[in-house]
Design a protein around this nucleic acid. Sequence first.
DNA 1: TTGTTTCCGGACAGTCTTTATCCGAGTTGA
DNA 2: TCAACTCGGATAAAGACTGTCCGGAAACAA
Lengths: 160, 160
Amino acid sequence: MKMSGGVEWALHCCVVLTGATEPVPAARLAAFHDVSPTYLAKQLQALSRAGLVRSVQGQAGGYQLTRDPQAITVLDVVEAVDGRQSAFVCTEIRQRGPFAATPEQCRVPCGIASVMYDADRAWRDSLRATTIADLAGRVGRDVGPETLPRAREWMAGRSG
Amino acid sequence: MKMSGGVEWALHCCVVLTGATEPVPAARLAAFHDVSPTYLAKQLQALSRAGLVRSVQGQAGGYQLTRDPQAITVLDVVEAVDGRQSAFVCTEIRQRGPFAATPEQCRVPCGIASVMYDADRAWRDSLRATTIADLAGRVGRDVGPETLPRAREWMAGRSG
DNA sequence: TTGTTTCCGGACAGTCTTTATCCGAGTTGA
DNA sequence: TCAACTCGGATAAAGACTGTCCGGAAACAA
Ligand code: SF4
Ligand code: SF4
């Protein structure tokens, strides 16, 4: 029951991209967070596949958000990186053993699976309620008002 | 983001133990579900450590619930087997890189972590809303009214 | 055109958690 | 007393996650 650590990286990258006006290279994002550049690239590719960020190739290329930060939820990022399926996977053990249920009795998910899926839905609903814009606003408030412009400037610059 | 498969086994065992009047050996429970006896034993040990079931040793030993099934929630079982900590673990990457936050700024969890913890709380609340008794009732309804007494009889018997 | 910068995708080790198994300690019942 | 049966924790095998690498393709500048 452990979520992929890359989710945290991806969320941080999305927040940082909120304040960027030009495409930001993956290497720059990795240097900003001091994490493995190659592994972060993998997470960014997942985001790109999900359509959350657009990848611009070429000399001034990099990544940028495809839509308004207000239209991207935390759930979108989590599902893009960590997968879309429920944490609970039913092994259908009720169809095994001496008192196995018949396949016709297993048309509908049993009570155990239902409870698990309901909980998973509640989890996802909670994540869907917050957008990247909300996160960016809160992070900006936490870190102080003068840091964000400096970070934005560092992103645009050549070396840091 | 995958939950331990043993959670499903443990929940099934708790439901089965609902209708047992004497201690049921782990081997019997394993045979009932046709799963690895030794590995199931490990899950039962976790349940025992959490105080959900009582282990009776000796010749007629086995496992039995410690309290009323109505007083055991699904969350209790999940936390006993799969652990009690949140799926999201913060790596504190905000303290790394050229724009690292100072430790005094990191007294409180940031917005990203807060959202994750809130979602985790919603998940746990949802699991806490259902008890083992509810599950047993629903499973009994799904599987038909005549199966449960037969299963109970099989549990008490010697071989089968 | 040519060269540089950048992303993309898959193939490849290292590391950690999950899965599965074994044998000894302890208890019950005869 | 004795024997049989049980749980319990320590011990290997398997798989998933983490991290790395390289060749290819696309865009831009000279
Ligand atoms: S009873 Fe529910 S949890 Fe168990 S195998 Fe069937 S669907 Fe899965
Ligand atoms: S900003 Fe939040 S998620 Fe990121 S390292 Fe800090 S506490 Fe963790």
